[in-house]
């Protein structure tokens, strides 16, 4: 009986907590390390640990020439909806639903910091 009660409580509590869970906003640098390093690399040069068998090289975020050819809106869209949303590779996944719009905006600013460039608006 005690076990059954515990299990019922576990289900109820998990539902309760997950339905009310709001994640605190994270710093752009930490977002980049968590979600982007794996493909774009520790220095943002597009040579992440996952690159070995990729058919398309991830974007070099330190390349001012390449990065300045994209507007902030395009970069926002690529992060939120994935590479295919801007006619680029499926290997760039959609991060919308994982990251908030505010976090994606902060990442766009962080990418501008990495490339030391501004976008072609």
């Amino acid at each position: 009986m005690k076990v059954m009660l515990s299990r019922v409580m576990m289900v109820l509590l998990t539902c309760f907590l997950s339905s009310t869970q709001v994640l605190a906003a994270e710093k752009a640098e930490d977002l980049y390390k968590n979600y982007c390093w794996q493909c774009h690399g520790m220095t943002g040069n597009g040579n992440g640990v996952n690159v070995r068998d990729m058919s398309v090289q991830p974007r070099d975020h330190t390349d001012a020439k390449e990065m300045s050819a994209r507007s902030d809106d395009e970069i926002f869209k690529a992060i939120k909806e994935g590479g295919q949303a801007i006619s680029k590779s499926v290997l760039m996944p959609p991060w919308g639903g994982v990251l908030s719009d505010d976090e994606i905006h902060s990442l766009v600013k962080y990418l501008r910091h990495l490339c030391q460039c501004s976008g072609n608006q």
Binding site: C39, M92, P93
Partner: peptide, 16 residues
């Protein structure tokens, strides 16, 4: 694009 992060055989695929 899942292969980017996951190996489908030892030594082939992503590593994170």
């Amino acid at each position: 694009g899942c292969l980017a992060c996951h190996e489908i055989e030892e030594g082939y695929g992503g590593l994170s």
